[in-house]
């Protein structure tokens, strides 16, 4: 009996979370959702780099993975301030926080992060191979960079959620979030870029930094939502 009830509760919880995920995806696609903002920013930065660096193809190929990673990182930060702020402005956040007794707030935050990532960051990962061509990168390097972005960018969203939760009540929280979050993301950037280089530069390893990157993402997938949930719980006014 109790097992069945528990199963029912779990089924209900997953249904709740699926509803939240689909709503956030829908919102990011609809007008004003900002799914494209990040991609356009990403494109703008990458296209500008060759003009600034000059037509040295070897140099571009060498700095390509790093430039892709840094641009993707900044593009990720761009939409983070709206992660909770939009919900706070229309009162939804109160109801999400009140749902804490039915399904943990940290889980709600995790699902919101996943939806944000799928709606706003995944397009960056998809666009990265194309933009890699602008940087004269080798196919292997392009593939490796896209793969590291796929594995590493969720970490940015997870830790960014904690920053977004802290700054949720501030009218211009975007900059503060970036300042709060950037130092914490540096390890993700370092291992992401070194794995990307490892795929093309021969003596450098690919697998080790890549695995550490994956571990960082998994670690932050727990830490970020829990920290964000705490901040949201105590930040309501």
């Amino acid at each position: 009996m109790s097992g069945r009830t528990e199963g029912g509760v779990q089924a209900r919880a997953s249904q709740n979370m699926l509803a939240l995920f689909l709503r956030d995806i829908r919102l990011s696609i609809r007008a004003g959702g900002g799914a494209l903002t990040g991609v356009i920013f990403f494109l703008a930065v990458i296209v500008t780099i060759p003009f600034g660096v000059g037509p040295d193809l070897n140099l571009l190929a060498r700095i390509g993975p790093a430039i892709l990673w840094i641009s993707a990182l900044l593009a990720c930060l761009l939409g983070l301030d709206r992660l909770f702020q939009a919900d706070r402005e229309d009162g939804s956040l109160d109801l999400l926080v009140l749902g804490n007794d039915r399904h943990m707030l940290a889980l709600t935050v995790l699902v919101k992060c996943l939806a944000h990532w799928a709606g706003s960051v995944l397009p960056l990962v998809v666009a990265a191979p194309l933009l890699g061509l602008f940087m004269n990168m080798a196919p292997v390097g392009i593939g490796a960079t896209a793969l590291t972005l796929l594995v590493g960018t969720p970490a940015i969203t997870f830790i960014g959620a904690a920053g977004a939760a802290v700054a949720v009540a501030l009218p211009r929280g975007g900059l503060l979030i970036s300042v709060l979050v950037l130092p914490l993301i540096i390890p993700v950037l370092i291992f992401g870029v070194s794995a990307s280089y490892g795929a093309v530069a021969d003596p450098d390893p690919f697998l080790q930094p890549f695995l550490i990157l994956a571990a960082l993402t998994l670690f932050l997938a727990v830490l970020g939502p829990v920290a964000a949930a705490l901040a949201l719980r105590h930040g309501t006014d």
Binding site: Q15, N16, R23, R30, G33, G91, L95
Partner: peptide, 26 residues
């Protein structure tokens, strides 16, 4: 809890909003 704000998303239709809150609240 029905506060001053309606907790509905402008970009979604009324039905979508209600369906979300029904599924989310259980």
């Amino acid at each position: 809890y029905l506060g001053h704000q309606n907790a509905m998303k402008q970009a979604l239709s009324v039905t979508e909003n209600l369906r979300f809150w029904r599924d989310f609240s259980g």
